[in-house]
Structures are given as C-alpha cells and as structure tokens.
Design a protein around this nucleic acid. Sequence first.
DNA 1: CCAAGGTGCTTCGAATTCGAAGCACTAGAG
DNA 2: CTCTAGTGCTTCGAATTCGAAGCACCTTGG
Lengths: 170, 170
Amino acid sequence: MTDAGQSPLDRVELDAYFALIEVAGLLRHAVEQQLREQGDLSYVQFQLLALLGLDSPTGSERMTDLADGVVYSRSGLTYQAGLLEKAGLVTRAAAADDERAVLVTITDAGRERIARVLPGHVAVIKDLLLKPLSRAQVETLRSVLEPAREHMRSAPPRSARRRRRKEGDD
Amino acid sequence: MTDAGQSPLDRVELDAYFALIEVAGLLRHAVEQQLREQGDLSYVQFQLLALLGLDSPTGSERMTDLADGVVYSRSGLTYQAGLLEKAGLVTRAAAADDERAVLVTITDAGRERIARVLPGHVAVIKDLLLKPLSRAQVETLRSVLEPAREHMRSAPPRSARRRRRKEGDD
DNA sequence: CCAAGGTGCTTCGAATTCGAAGCACTAGAG
DNA sequence: CTCTAGTGCTTCGAATTCGAAGCACCTTGG
C-alpha cells in the first residue's frame, strides 16, 4: 500500500488543490494583462525589476541570485534579462570578482517603469484577490501557504536543480 | 520599502500574494513533470481527460464547456484537443443538434491513460502540498480560496473577453 | 604551473500559450 | 425565405517557456 492504489484525495483536499491552481492562474493572468498594458512588461520582467528596484539595496544582482527569487529556469532568465536590457531597463556586466558571473543592474528607466506599473499592479491584486477576503482571511491564507511554500522550496524540482555530473550522474 | 505612491499592500497582503503565486507555480510545475514522465501528458491534457473521464457522466463535452472547466483560451483548447485526438485519447465529432459545436469524447485509451497517471498525480499533491499541512489547514485553505475563486470567476478578464460566452453569465 | 571537475550563463530546438482574425453554422426579425 | 447578428471553433503569428548541451571561468589537488 505504497501509493499505487492509495486512496484518492477527498473532497476537501481536491477542492483546496483546484481552488489554489485556479485562483493563482486567474490572478496571474489578470496581473500579466495589467503589466502588459500599462508597462509593456511580462510578469517575469516585472518580478525581476521589482527584485532589483525594490528589494535589492544596491540595485544589482547576479543572474543566479535572481533565479532564486524568480521561479523560472536559467535559460528563461537569460531570455528575459536580454529583453530588459534591450529595453534599457537594466544593464548587464561581468562581475568584478568572478568573470563568469553577470551582474544585472536596474537603470533609472527601469525604476521609472516599476513606479509606473506598481499602482495598477496593486489595484489588480486588491480587486481580484483581497477584495472578497476579510483581513483575517488574508492572514489565514498567508499562514497556511507559508508552510507549503517552505516545504516546496526545500524539496524542489525547480530551476535550481543541480546539474548532473558530467556523465555519471548521482 | 515598496511604496507605490498610493496605498501599497501591507506585509501580510504581500506575503499572501507572493506565497499564493509561488506555491501554485511550484506545485503546478511538479505536477506537470509527473504527468509528462508517467503519462506523456501536459497539464491541460490531463485536465481535459479528467474532466471527460471523471466528471462528465457521458464522457462527452462540447469544446465550450470544456473551456469553462479549463482555464485556457479557446485556441489553446483547440490545440490540446487536437493533440489528444492524434494520440487516440479522445475523438471529436460535430454535435448532432448544432453543426457548429464539436463534441469531444474520451476513448478507452483515454480512460486508461487517466487511470495510469492518477495515482502519481495524487502522490505529488499529497507530498508537496498536503504533507506539511494539517487537516484543518487544508480545510481552511479551501474555505479561504473559495470566495476568491468565486469572485474571480464572476469578474474575469478571461478568455471570454471580447465575445461573450454562451449567454446569461453575469 | 597544469589537469580535472565545478559553477555561471547562454544558445538551441521544441512545446505551449495567447489574442485576433476568419470560417461555418444558427437564431431572430422582416 | 432572406438578411443580419451572434455563437462555436479553428487558423495564424508572435511570445514565452523549458531542458539539454555547450562555452568560459574558477577552484582544487598534485
């Protein structure tokens, strides 16, 4: 009785799962539209700019560190960082202490862009996600999701997946 | 320090939002991998098969009704339904009472495929999402997400944007 | 100093997504 | 019956995503 014939999810579990996927999907979709319309940014681009402009004290981060904050693959990050650079919202330069590393830095234009879309972004989240919830429910949501988040981060088949050894992997 | 100039989200709201997006993203990613490996299915394909094989009493649904259950665009649905048909997991035929409508029907092979991937699917959800949560927390999660879900469904800039859906909707 | 392996990022091809536009059929008014 | 609007689905092009493979650099051991 490992898991092959394991009891399916019960009603509550199933509903929680579906609701989670659906709510997040709809929310993300709405946010993406807002960002595209008001700032010509994809969601990932916004995340990157926000990370650099709002979280990072220096406005510079290495690609790898950005990948840790944004859930995507390395290659996807390269792609989006390239777009941001082409748009003049960030610059890329080799790090001084490590020639391999690329230091991504937000520009003034990038900061302006963030400032421009942030109010709309906040409005969407409030309208779609927060509006129908009480203050207590929002807190509850956060407190319930937090353990799951931690758990997933610690056992993640995500982008930070270790590179397999040359040929004889683990 | 995320000041937007208006009334930014406070810490709790922000955390709830980010946790939601991240947890759903990671979970979905993990599920997609499992479905791909064990059943050579995309997430949408699985959703469609599940809807037809597990939810629908007849095993047949119109494209539009499938679109209501799966959060994607009409064109994306066409694409995925085409793949499922090519794989022999569903059939497509014009509806008898409306020549425009396409009736998608799950095949035996489709049901087998569902049965094959379902245990693994359940296992992933339990391992990643449910494991770190208590029974009460799962219930809480569901009950908190439900209002948001309803709210989003009723005011969605979704795929049904330009052209309205069936009829009386809101 | 040199060799071997590890790390950081990019390139490449394939898959999936979306919205807009278009085609086919139905329903309602005259 | 005919015309016009509406509905159901597909086609099309563009954008984004991922993983695998590859290049360049760093680190460690001899």
